[in-house]
């Protein structure tokens, strides 16, 4: 069930990228898609247990797999920096293309 929701999020994001016209909306759709991917990593990490994997004297039972969590932390940072970079690019484009419609920008900028 949870897995289906996660995939639905990824697909929603993907279709958003294709169907939305506005460049900012496209970037937000990409963010939705990456949220789905992050959720999927968290889901897989918690297959065998739910507790935070922190070393301590008390045994609290099955803990979550730390590897996917560590990996996705890297991916979140990368994704966030890429989005920041893209938004800066969009800001620059917005001066000459105030509507930010990707098809219009594309028409104006392809030889």
């Amino acid at each position: 069930m949870l897995e289906a929701c996660v995939f639905a999020t990824i697909l929603c994001g993907f279709f958003g990228i294709v169907l939305k016209q506005n460049l900012v909306m496209k970037i937000i759709s990409m963010d939705v898609m990456s949220t789905g991917v992050v959720a999927y990593y968290v889901l897989i990490a918690s297959r065998n247990g739910l507790f935070t994997p922190i070393l301590s004297d008390v045994n609290r039972g099955a803990y979550a797999d730390p590897v996917p969590q560590a990996v996705i932390l890297t991916a979140i940072v990368i994704g966030f920096s890429i989005q920041a970079l893209m938004l800066v690019g969009v800001m620059k484009l917005a001066r000459d293309n105030p509507t930010l419609e990707s098809s219009e920008i594309e028409k104006g900028n392809t030889p």
């Binding site: 990228i17 496209k26 893209m86 690019g89 969009v90 620059k92 484009l93």
Partner: peptide
């Protein structure tokens, strides 16, 4: 150039 780069990154 910004548009081409943005498209690439996207």
């Amino acid at each position: 150039s910004i548009w081409v780069a943005l498209r690439y990154l996207f």
